[in-house]
Amino acid sequence: MQELIQQCKENNLQAQAKVYQLFSGKLFALSLKYSRNRMDAEDVLQDSFIQVFQKIHQYKNKGSFEGWLKRIVINTALQKYREKSPLQLVKEEQDIENEEGLVLDIDEEKIDISDLLQLIQELPDRYRLVFNLYVLDNFSHKEIAKMLEISVGTSKSNLSRARLILKKKVENYHQIQEKA
């Protein structure tokens, strides 16, 4: 791996292709979760890899390479939706939902991964980003607030809204599945 990274630093196209081949599957999945749709996710992935190869000399072998790659994908996605939504004025609720409300009553085996992914993608941009960052990538509200340049309160309310929306959607989905 070290050797491959070194070759990438020397702008070796074959090594770059190898890195892409190794990580594009995982990173595309990550990109899909943060993006509105497949097309956006491809854009994010593409921009991310270009950044990866441009900035690879900044990677000093501290921490996992995969972690470093993921961080770049996340940042690229954040940048994309921060810039695309300058005026998404969505009324936000400050009250955090009761944890009880988040308990689902479904058969998770019956839920398709791609459907679950679609549910996330359908969330408003900010909710989707906060949900991803907090729930799937384990960032704290403080970190999210900094990354998205919002307040901690906004981050928390965004998360609770996202959870509520997702819960409703999952339940609807479940009902449809049951009927089918």
């Binding site: 594009s24 988040l102 689902l104 679950l116």
Partner: peptide
Amino acid sequence: IDRLFQEKLKDMEVAP
């Protein structure tokens, strides 16, 4: 709901 998404999407890989 968090756990549902965490577990389902944790090791997802999609070929671009």
